[in-house]
Amino acid sequence: MEYFVQQLVNGLTLGSIYGLIAIGYTMVYGIIGMINFAHGDIFMIGAFTALIVFLILGAMFYSVPVVVALLIMMIVAMLLTSLYNWTIEKVAYRPLRGSFRLAPLITAIGMSIALSNFVQVTQGPRNKPIPPMVSQVYNIAGISVSLKQIIIVIVTVSLLAIFWYLVNKTALGRAQRACEQDRRMAALLGVDVDRTISITFIMGASLAAVAGTLFLMYYGVVVFSDGFVPGVKAFTAAVLGGIGSIPGAVLGGLLIGFIESMWSAYFSIDYKDVAAFSILAIVLIFLPSGILGRPEVEKV
């Protein structure tokens, strides 16, 4: 039982990171109906920015309190990653809006290849390890919970709360939801569609940057190719939860996290990704629009 709860805690940590990335996928999909393949690499850019900021802080100051360091890393990563995603949207996706369905998908794949290779070229192909930032581990009723895990869950929950408020209670969120339902109608009613889409990309990137910072803190290492696997898993999470649905993305992220840690714990660690992908396939066969997704009704 303790072992099971332990895995539940691990899955929750992993799932939080996936959930944060998945929101970026699901929001972009909801608003412009494209798979932003470069989002995984945006996450990697976030992690790398955090790494570089960490090194700058280490070089400039003798010692910085961990909380302050984490906050600075997160904020700089959010700003820079948002700038990346904003530029990408402007350069690679906006010219193709209204073009046929596969065109932005291909530029997104191209962007993903370009971003990961850009980091490889400029930062080198090797693993980038950092010394552990937080190492306390608490023992609660036989279950060991590390401070890292607590930080991840707290940051995720508070970000989701802010995010929920933004989407559901502000004018910006209303504009976003309007664009999601009908872009042309929203434009007619005076919503600045281009601006709303840009802001959506910025919000997705900020969440991915936080996920990247947390990823760096949790694993203590990042490499240029790190965008792909978490990216695909987060996308899987978004689809599993029903793409376009924000609570669905979080739910899907948690599910993928649980599946992964349970499978590694009880079956074999080699096949954990196979398990995640197989469950995706099985869920989609029985629930073709995901868990919380609205079934797509096609009118003729």
Binding site: Y29, I35, R101, L105, V232, F235, T236, V239, I243, D270, Y271, D273, V274, F277, S278, L280, A281, L284, I285, P288, S289, E296
Partner: peptide, 28 residues
Amino acid sequence: FPVLRLRGDYLAIVTLAFGEIIRLVLIN
């Protein structure tokens, strides 16, 4: 067979997953 009912991007992600499954099986 399993993906017959899926369309568009759902189909894309399942085929992607299938490709990854084959590769992971080859590795493991």
